[in-house]
Simulated scan of single mutants.
Amino acid sequence: MPSRRYRAVVVGASLGGFHALRTLFAALHGRFPWPVIAVLHTATEDVSDMAQLYAARTPLNVSEAPERVAPQAGNVYLAPGGMHLLIETDGRFAFSTEARVNFSRPSIDVLFDSAADVYRSGLIGVVLTGANDDGARGLSAIRSRGGLAIVQNPATAEAPSMPAAALDIAGADYVLDLEKLGPQLNRLAGLDA
């Protein structure tokens, strides 16, 4: 039985993130009970091909986040290219073309901050590989509202700067090698790892 405490998972990745996200999504159980919302820094504006590649490796539905729709359990949502992805106070996705944050749009911090305001202690934040510090302040916001923080072990990251910054600024409840992240999320959901 899934923990009633949690309601959503947000994930951020940058350099090396395509492989890291593919590994994470492939490990999630087919009955995973929460929506997973991910930001990947990418040069492409069209993430639909990427969504199809991820979908081939996981039993969960994978798609680009649709604007003005509330995230649903058992789905993986990818931030659209070139736009910030936010969770509005009514729980629905919203897009923004405001200035880049940490040189990025979409920004991990923007998603994490807005999701922390909505889900509060019901949110799990995950920071993966990356070459900057995007996500560190957002993960701090998640923890300050009672949410759970998981960070990829920098030693196992293709680019260790982002998880290292997250640990420096926010700390973490779990620091795990990439291959152990999905099984840990399954355990938190009360599912077989």
Rank of each mutant, 00 (worst) to 15 (best):
L78P: 04
T156H: 04
I169G: 06
A70N: 12
V151K: 02
L148H: 06
A70V: 12
L139I: 07
G138Y: 03
E67R: 15
M83N: 10
V62Y: 08
G122T: 05
I87K: 07
L60V: 12
I169S: 09
M83P: 07
Y77S: 01
D168R: 14
L85C: 11
A65G: 13
N153P: 10
T89E: 08
S144M: 12
Y119R: 06
E64T: 15
N153G: 01
T58L: 05
A165Y: 02
E88V: 09
L128A: 08
A73K: 06
M83E: 14
I124Y: 03
L78T: 07
F103Q: 15
Q72K: 13
L111A: 05
M83V: 15
G135E: 11
E67P: 14
P59E: 06
S161L: 01
A149T: 03
T58K: 01
I124L: 06
S161R: 13
S144N: 14
G74F: 04
A157K: 01
P154K: 03
T156E: 07
A94P: 08
V101F: 09
V101D: 02
G122A: 11
T89A: 12
R68P: 08
A73H: 11
V126R: 00
P80L: 12
T89R: 03
A141H: 07
A115E: 01
T156N: 02
L85I: 03
S144R: 15
G122I: 08
E98R: 15
G138M: 03
G171V: 03
A172F: 11
A157D: 00
N75D: 09
P106Q: 03
G135T: 05
G130A: 00
S144T: 14
I87R: 11
V101S: 09
L85F: 05
S121C: 10
S96N: 03
D168K: 05
A164C: 12
N75W: 09
R57P: 08
A155F: 01
V110S: 00
A170P: 08
Y119H: 01
N61S: 10
S140I: 06
L60K: 10
S140V: 02
F93P: 02
S140C: 09
G146D: 10
V151P: 05
L178I: 15
A170E: 04
L128E: 00
P59T: 11
V118I: 08
I108L: 04
I108P: 00
N102V: 01
V151N: 02
I169D: 07
P71E: 08
N132A: 12
N153E: 14
S96K: 11
L139P: 09
N75R: 10
I150V: 13
R105L: 09
D134H: 13
A70I: 07
G135V: 05
G138K: 07
N153I: 05
L111P: 00
G91H: 08
Y174M: 14
F95A: 05
